[in-house]
Design a protein around this nucleic acid. Sequence first.
DNA 1: TAGATTGTTAATCGATTAACAATC
DNA 2: TAGATTGTTAATCGATTAACAATC
Lengths: 206, 206
Amino acid sequence: MAKKPIPDIVVGRLPQYLRSVQRMAAQGRVVTSSQELGERLGISAAQIRKDLSQFGEFGKQGTGYQITFLIDQIRHILHVDKEWDVAIVGAGDVGSALARYKGFHNRGFRVAAIFDNDPEKVGSRVDSFTVLDTSRMVEEIRKAGIRIAMITTPAPAAQEVANMLIEAGVRAILNYAPISLNVPNNVRMQQIDPSIHLQRMTYYLD
Amino acid sequence: MAKKPIPDIVVGRLPQYLRSVQRMAAQGRVVTSSQELGERLGISAAQIRKDLSQFGEFGKQGTGYQITFLIDQIRHILHVDKEWDVAIVGAGDVGSALARYKGFHNRGFRVAAIFDNDPEKVGSRVDSFTVLDTSRMVEEIRKAGIRIAMITTPAPAAQEVANMLIEAGVRAILNYAPISLNVPNNVRMQQIDPSIHLQRMTYYLD
DNA sequence: TAGATTGTTAATCGATTAACAATC
DNA sequence: TAGATTGTTAATCGATTAACAATC
């Protein structure tokens, strides 16, 4: 009898919980409660308790949750108690900004390589990285054992890039190209398209 | 008797539908079906029909949906049948990449101004924009009637910036700072944090 | 007409909330 | 002990899917 899988919507909230308690820790806080976390995140306290209880008993009645302990537990659950190498494909403005981004530090990720197919860009420097040619991408990613990639190419190239990445062994793709990618079931994909996020909000504006 | 409001989760799918049919239109396609759209987006055909039918009868039995007509309808529903001015706060790598981003074109948005509080950056150029001082932000945004902003400041500054934006009349915020913002009910907020998106996927990686 | 596909209803499935005993 | 807060159950709420009459 297999254990019931955790709903993806619950998995999706864990990174928010983690970010919030890490922020509390940075401010020297020691314990928190489902109520406090809920207020910070706009989520009900009951939901937070239920989500966390799917993975274990992390709190104490009457007291709440020990922040450092909760951080360790969530990092472990999300597999970010290690640093993952991440490849960036596309050395334009967005790819370069991601290569320089300081926000991956302590969150479980490290940019490992950046690729582009433009001969003008290949060999140039972005932050501490030398831009590599996309023609070598499958080989390099496979050799380095990279499992995570971010696509920042123009939309028309994105699907082919995704196919190459998957062939190379990548199993999680964060797609900044404004196009819906098709990936097999054993590959995770998330999309970031600022226009889509904005359009979701303009519905509510007059 | 008030009409039932559209669930936000339905609103959230409309921009995806729009992007997909706009892509089809760019390829010269004339009609599509809920089935085809569903396959492209990984959403069931029944769901797409149900979502669209909340707003009107946009299709024809036996035929499907006229692409140009569907585009017009969704653009109208989402209020992107006009161009919204958008302010950017934070002229770092991410803010600059957004200022230069070509992907807002034809999606309903136009960057109108970029602000920073760093004297080194104020007055400098980013794309065709001159970076303005944050101290003038409330005044400038109010004067220009800007209703939408993107925050790309460091996390510690983001909440205060959000408060200022709201005071200035902004009602939709796309937040790139890695911190959970609290905004009143009459303000929409969306968060983009690449680490959070990545962490949501590493759960599934070994 | 025959085939295809919509819009919609009812059934199913899943997620959220309320409530409270347990217990720190 | 008294007060606070968890973990969990049952109830509620909401979203998705299946199915099909309507109709192009």
